[in-house]
Design a protein around this nucleic acid. Structure first.
Lengths: 191, 191
DNA sequence: GTCTATAAGATGATAGAC
DNA sequence: GTCTATCATCTTATAGAC
């Protein structure tokens, strides 16, 4: 059961992820994907009948990877370290050709999405904010749940926003300054 | 020299602004604009030959209004008040049907823009951050220029980002929580 | 799975009449 | 200024052969 190389479905997904994060869902076509993968656009339709299907598959795989990230970093000793890693994801995104977060891009395209894709985007935001709120609670147990929720929204909004300016100014380092601020917000390390 | 009503050029600009802030520049057409204004798409081309022309006109008028805002609020006695007003602009944007900042939306469409439009977006970001840095300097004169620049980037990124989540959760109040945080960051009122 | 062929409709844009 | 007419191209698909 060894895969010598990625199958075309995965190749389409990878190409689509890059195009979505750089151009937005309304600025690339099945043909663009087909050309990058080296197949015909009808073959793209074979894997993802509609663009909505493609979008849903994209955010689900993105969310899946995030879940794996959460599991992998759960064993780290401090909130500080987990937060550093998390912010590092955004730094990597900014450095990858000025991409945006896939969910953030879909949020900016929100009004053009079908209901099922909108739900997925909302679920992704909720997942991130819930994790951040949990980290905030761990970091300073004396902080109220409302304050933790506030903090998590603040941190995620800041990271999404900084990707926009990082791309406009071609300056991925902006993500690190945002990360530093978030670390300060979450306060002194504990758990 | 009295204008009884707005001319069609202005009507096109207004319709385009709403469509750009809600759908992004790649998700509306000259036909969409024409239908909303009640003219034909060729008439839209008369005012704005290319979409790039339209985009440039949109951000220039947006920036012009911001400049007027800066002038109008320059007389306010405190940084706190000016900052409150500024954040109020974003609250209004979120409440206007979950719009994004026009420049923020163009930032997310950045990779699909022509060079002239990209320059305009960059200039807009610079204008905002320069103003915010100036407010930071006024607020706490003992703060370093680098810290002021940091703060201004942070504040603008946060406001841009919170518009994304405000729209995803259909919750414009998120902008107010962001505003509160920004006020705290800028510190105690002075000038 | 991947292809060719095809379709209906949208899109950005232009020419020329009024 | 606004229109009709037209254009080449793109877009999202679908049908059916291999």
């Amino acid at each position: 059961m060894h895969k010598a190389s990625v199958d075309n479905r995965t190749r389409v997904l990878n190409a689509a992820r890059e195009l979505l994060q750089t151009r937005g869902i309304n600025a690339f076509s099945h043909r663009d994907l087909a050309e990058r993968v080296g197949i015909k656009s009808s073959s793209v339709h074979y894997y993802f009948p509609t663009k909505e299907d493609l979008g849903v598959a994209l955010i689900r795989s993105y969310q899946h990877e995030l879940t794996e990230f959460f599991e992998a970093t759960a064993t780290l000793p401090t909130v500080i370290e987990r937060l550093t890693r998390f912010c590092g994801l955004f730094e990597g995104t900014a450095k990858a050709g000025g991409r945006l977060c896939l969910a953030g891009m879909l949020a900016s395209d929100f009004a053009t999405l079908g209901p099922s894709l909108q739900s997925e985007v909302r679920a992704f935001f909720q997942l991130v904010e819930a994790w951040l709120a949990a980290q905030a609670a761990l970091s300073k147990p004396e902080r109220s749940p409302a304050a933790n929720a506030d903090l998590s929204q603040l941190a995620f909004s800041l990271l999404e926003g900084v990707l926009l300016s990082a791309r406009v100014f071609d300056d991925p380092d902006r993500t690190r300054r945002a990360a530093r601020h978030i670390q300060q917000l979450f306060g002194s390390p504990s758990v």
